[in-house]
Write a protein that binds this DNA or RNA. Sequence first.
DNA 1: ATAGTGACTGAATGATTATTCATTCATTGA
DNA 2: TCAATGAATGAATAATCATTCAGTCACTAT
Lengths: 230, 230
Amino acid sequence: MLAVQQRVAYIKLERKFMLNHAATKTRTKPRTAPKEERKTQLIKATIRSIAKHGLSVTTMATVAREAGLSQGIINLHFQSKERLLEETLRFVVDEYRAIWYKTLESSGNSAADRLTALVAVGFDKRICQRNKLAVWFAFWGESRSRPTYRNICAERDREYKQVLTGLCAEIITEGGYKARADFVAHGLAAMIEGLWLDLLLIPADVTPEHARAVSLSWLQDVFPGHFPNN
Amino acid sequence: MLAVQQRVAYIKLERKFMLNHAATKTRTKPRTAPKEERKTQLIKATIRSIAKHGLSVTTMATVAREAGLSQGIINLHFQSKERLLEETLRFVVDEYRAIWYKTLESSGNSAADRLTALVAVGFDKRICQRNKLAVWFAFWGESRSRPTYRNICAERDREYKQVLTGLCAEIITEGGYKARADFVAHGLAAMIEGLWLDLLLIPADVTPEHARAVSLSWLQDVFPGHFPNN
DNA sequence: ATAGTGACTGAATGATTATTCATTCATTGA
DNA sequence: TCAATGAATGAATAATCATTCAGTCACTAT
């Protein structure tokens, strides 16, 4: 019964693409778009499977079942399981980066406003979902033994910390605080990731709103002149 | 060649126990001690295997090989792979708790001293080893889908945060700070775990000493009266 | 000495897994 | 309408895994 529903969903997806494709009138690469759609469909199924079963119990079969497609489909689109997993990690990492970049663009001019916005993104509904947090931690858990995972994460991390350090430096200069920008930024980034862990492990005690409040309260403590307490 | 050395080591262990046992003169449970020794030997081999290969590639064979023992040994002592993994997590969790309890007992009377000591334990050489950090994150990564793992961690977490909150509350009262004790403690605990992630992912950039410095600098920023900056 | 004890071994077993590929099916251009 | 195209299927395959257990070995008590 469920399989039928998923089959229907797949057919709709196929139809939708055809319309889109007809509209673009590109002829050199027919059916190129549905390939991408299939890939993201499979990546999203992988995220659900990792969240539901864990990375070590996520098999080609669980992902295919979650996507409502057949066994062989993953090798067709990703060549191997390993590639699927790498692209899944990249998907989550890139999504986070894209959102905080965009947020910075559309946020205020003051360093304090921008910092607030940047911190809040970590607890945004689009990012801070338990399924996605499970994916982050699943890959972090394997990253000691897989340089590929580590590199994908490290790259993102450097960028993020660089921006964070810049904003902290600006605030410190403005306010004449004693704190060291790199230490503050490093601690702040670490705190956000640690709060993610709480959201994953004890969701009953900690909500995204609560975690955001903890972060912002910390900003008030460290930069009292810029983030007035009440 | 290596196997022979390990075999020799095993024999020595066996001999050592016999002497110990003769000394205690207990007769009802003979050979009970070497069983425990074997178990911790296997648990330590599991830690190395998880750090080297990752949890999802850690098999009965990799653990047995790492311990220099045979295939069947794990089922003999732990009944199943799952039990071995649970006891490995418990081993690491209990070790951390034991050390910070002991540290608190032997540290100064002032809340500030005790808090400093408690934070420093997180970066102690006995705790903050990359192999062990890999184990923490490996299990956290699977914990979304395994209530057993989650419970083992959650229990420890509650205790730790409770002590942390108590110390922060004391300091806040003494110094008349505006900060909320539960928020500060929550943020601090999260930061330590986030710094562990950096130690795991980018050990070239972050050392335990550096991470400890970041934490202590954070304490200085939040409680300037209790942790004077220079 | 020697039989008894129980920790330990490692080959065998059955279950599970990623990957392959001959076949099916839907869609397209002529 | 129909041949051509290539995405999707799912049964088959080979590899890997946890678990079992009959047999081995070191040591103890008699």
